[in-house]
Design a protein around this nucleic acid. Sequence first.
RNA 1: GCGGGUAUAGCUUAGUGGUAAAGCCCUAGCCUUCCAAGCUAGUUAUGUGGGUUCGAUUCCCACUACCCGCUCCA
Length: 527
Amino acid sequence: MSDAASEKNTALMEKIVSLCKRRGFIFQSAEIYGGLNGCWDYGPLGTELKRNLKEYWWRKNVQEREDILGLDGSILTHQDVLKASGHVGGFSDPMCDCLLSKARLRADQIEPLSGTAYHYTGASHDESGWSVDRPYSVLIWGNQDENKARKTAKQYYAQFLTDKQIAPKKLELAGETNEELTETTKYNPENGSLLTEPREFNLMFKTHMGASADDGDESAVAYLRPETAQSIFVQFKNVAETNRVKLPFGIAQIGKSFRNEINPRNYTFRSREFEQMEIEFFCRAEDGLALTDEWLERRLTFYEEIGIPREHLHILDIPDGERAHYSQKTYDIEYEFPFGIQELEGVAYRGAYDLSKHKEHSGKPLDFFDDETKEKLVPHVVEPSAGCDRTILALICEAYDEETVTDEKGKEETRTVMRFAPRMAPVKVGVFPLLKNKPELVEKARDVQSLLTPHMNVFYDETAAIGRRYRRQDEIGTPFCVTIDFDTIGESGDELKDTVTLRHRDSMEQERISIADLRSFLLDRIA
RNA sequence: GCGGGUAUAGCUUAGUGGUAAAGCCCUAGCCUUCCAAGCUAGUUAUGUGGGUUCGAUUCCCACUACCCGCUCCA
């Protein structure tokens, strides 16, 4: 991305964020207390949008399918579940930072070195009277010159200089001592600079169960789940035994997950608390790869149905060596966000890894008896795992549009429109009396509102000029507006009586429709 | 986590070491017959905590949050 394009996209993202706040889609969490890093709240419209997404996903993937069942697992998770899955232990690699280059290194992958460590207590610059007092050391090894240690140390201390004009080599080092070290991993093999102490980077939120549990009680440790998938695997046997299922079949779940991201970024894209929509689709080993491709197609169709065209999606076929070791096939479905192409969903063929691990750790049989082949097996699994909040953000970015409209006087102005697919739109229809000081119009508009309210989210508005009301609805993505005028109440004769103006968001075109046809007309278009 | 930047009303922006301004939005009223009309009135702000000062929104420090670039992303 060029700098100019990058700046344009940053500006676009700022406008989207601003609209989301102004119109009540998304707010910063705990804003009045300064905000909570990586956490966001959905306002009234954002909540409607998210409900529409989750309900559509649930309907398509659970209710309209005989072979997928729902689950709603607890968020607090038994520590043994996450030990079995590898989330505890496996993903908490201690990391060190290089004090000179700021590079981050995995502590267990640092090459041990033997050599001479040169220690310093600080540095100074006599001419300017500047000095700094902090310990540092450099390792030299092999046939390296000891002056290399001094040069490196001066570069390190130079970063604290207030006057950047002073060259590092003009500094005087203080308190030089040296010692021989063997097999040390405290120094960066790249440049010999001292590293920070290793620090843990486990991204799970840890807590203690029970009111009296103290921090030292290891048996009371529980975690907020880092993914919804694990409760599906852990409950696999219960679901399978209580529901007369046969392979292949799936278990689906929508719910919150938590990761203590080091660096939340890009608005709601990488949050510490987020919602997932996941399916674990269990199958026979021989069907796994084909089902993975099938699910990819099905998921792409889903995104089209909610208004994200395929040409804005990218499919990443994760190559060998970059997939998790147990996965024979993984696709990432990515979307072109203004801040870059980023993942919305992963479709992964995970083999029998998860159930096998839980079988092994729990000691409980998690085999499935296949009635067709009369054999016991641990099913394989295909996992389409979508980020709900990420999809919401994609819907918002995709919908955002500005167009220039010219009024009758030739004046140009910008119309901001959220072009949500009608089935996702938070508000389906706006109902307006043309004028609010004519009781007949208001009464008729209220009748139309009552007619539609049981079937969809309706917004009634009688304030300001009719054009303003249309534009307000454009900005929140309401696909249709209905205006009750004097024709509706029969002032132009019986032919137009009980008809209303129906105005389309995208084209701004208007058509006349009878109130009797209104409900089915709208329902057909928002299903 | 590192480096850089930013923080004034719901939004977009002014401005000042001594009473914080405007536009848009919003609310109420009047008016108004289809694309952000007009008039009147009204609500709302210097992110948090320290310091310097008689006095700080302004200067300094710290913190928090957001943005950008790295880094990370099971």
